[in-house]
Amino acid sequence: MIELKFKRFTLNQRIQHIIFFTTFILLAYTGFPLKFPDEWWAKWMIASVGGFDNRTLIHHYSGLLMIGVSVYHVIFHLLLEKPRIDVLFNLQDLKDFIQQMRYYLWLSDEHPKFGRYTWKQKFEYFGGGFGAAVMGTTGLIMWFPFDAMKLFPLGVVQIAILFHTWEAVLASLAIFIGHFYDEHFGKFPNFSWITGNISEEEMRHEHPLEYEEAMKDQEIKEEVTETGHRKETGLITVFAKLVFTVIFLAIIVWMLWISYLVLVEAINTYIL
């Protein structure tokens, strides 16, 4: 039986993803310590990039690169390429969501069948887009506050600062916990962000509707049989997963710590 592979990401998209997540990690790494300068990890993290001025430099130029790749993404996928309709939300997503919740809560035995993009992936995609827009705009205002103040009063700059922190926490929670869990921890080792391909098994499991659509035109000689055997997991994979799990847990703890700090500060200032 030939092992089929399905193209999920083009080279262009993979490069965009790599630039986006590299700058994202650098921005989080150099941003949060400034927000919470009293925490021990903040001092350690700033020292690890070689001091405060380096931190600022890395943060500014990573941000610029992220704005660049975001603008490129919009221009490329809207203007240079035929825009995809199937990334947009539709009624089916709501039905899928309700069906999935029913399945999770044992109200139904039927798991929804997803197409190319699941409702959660669409959330992540547009959440990421919204986040990049908010962070990019407010970040530029904070980088050049007095140029911004030629157009807006000081209050706008202060609101930009507020947005920048909150959106950073929200985006990091979504990426470092949600996205890491779904796409990298759950599917470990997931190399589709490098190769661009996903396996037939994954295709059939995660995107059955797209799979059926793709296979309709194909002349399939052999009946696809449900293979009982699991993926062979070598010692290296197990070790790698262990390392990934430890890092993942550390990041979760860090993110929860940050969420706790911002929430407590906000609740103390605004609600109590």
Binding site: F146, M149, L154, G155, V156, Q158, I159
Partner: peptide, 18 residues
Amino acid sequence: GAQNAYVYGGKVHEGKSV
């Protein structure tokens, strides 16, 4: 660049409200 900026519409020390 501050000379031509509008540094009003919010106070520097005002933490809570704008």
